[in-house]
Amino acid sequence: MTAARTIVSPTQLRSRAGRTVYWTVLLLTLLAFVLAFLFPFYWAVTGAMKSAGELAQVPPTLVPNEWHPETFATAWSEIDLGRYLLNTVVVAGGAWAIQLAVDVPAAYALSKLRPRFGNLVLGMMLSTLMLPATALLVPTYLTVSEVPIVGVNLLNTPAAIWLPAAANAFNIFVLKRFFDQIPDELLEAATIDGAGPIRTMWTIVLPISRPILAVVSIFAVVTAWKDFIWPLLVLQDPSTQTLSVLLQRIAPDMPLNLLVAGLVLTSLPMIAVYLLFQKQILAGLSAGSIKG
Rank of each mutant, 00 (worst) to 15 (best):
M1E: 13
R5G: 06
T6P: 05
S9M: 03
W23H: 14
V25I: 12
L27V: 15
L30F: 14
L30A: 12
A32N: 03
F33M: 12
A36E: 06
L38Q: 09
F39V: 13
P40G: 01
F41E: 08
A44M: 13
K50M: 15
S51Q: 00
G53D: 14
L55K: 06
Q57T: 07
Q57E: 14
T61I: 14
L62A: 15
V63D: 06
T74W: 08
A75G: 07
A75I: 10
E78N: 11
D80L: 11
G82K: 09
A92L: 04
G93P: 04
A97E: 00
A97F: 05
D103P: 00
V104T: 04
P105H: 02
A109T: 07
L110M: 06
L113M: 15
L113F: 07
P115N: 08
R116L: 09
L122P: 03
L122T: 05
M124F: 12
M124W: 05
M130Q: 11
T134L: 10
L136C: 10
P139C: 09
Y141L: 12
Y141A: 07
L142P: 14
E146K: 12
V152N: 11
V152M: 09
N153G: 11
L154I: 11
N156D: 10
I161Y: 06
A165S: 09
A166N: 02
A167T: 04
N168Q: 02
F173E: 00
F173G: 00
V174R: 01
V174H: 03
L175S: 01
K176C: 02
Q181S: 09
Q181K: 12
I182V: 15
D184F: 09
L187T: 01
L187Y: 01
E188L: 05
E188T: 14
G194C: 07
T200S: 13
T203H: 14
V222P: 01
T223S: 13
A224N: 08
A224E: 03
K226D: 14
D227W: 05
I229S: 10
W230N: 00
L233Y: 10
L233I: 15
P238V: 04
T242C: 06
S244D: 02
L247C: 03
R249P: 08
R249Q: 08
I250R: 04
A251P: 06
D253F: 11
D253L: 09
L256W: 08
M270A: 01
I271S: 07
V273W: 04
L275C: 12
L275W: 07
Q278T: 07
G284K: 01
L285S: 05
S286L: 11
A287D: 04
K291E: 14
K291I: 08
K291S: 06
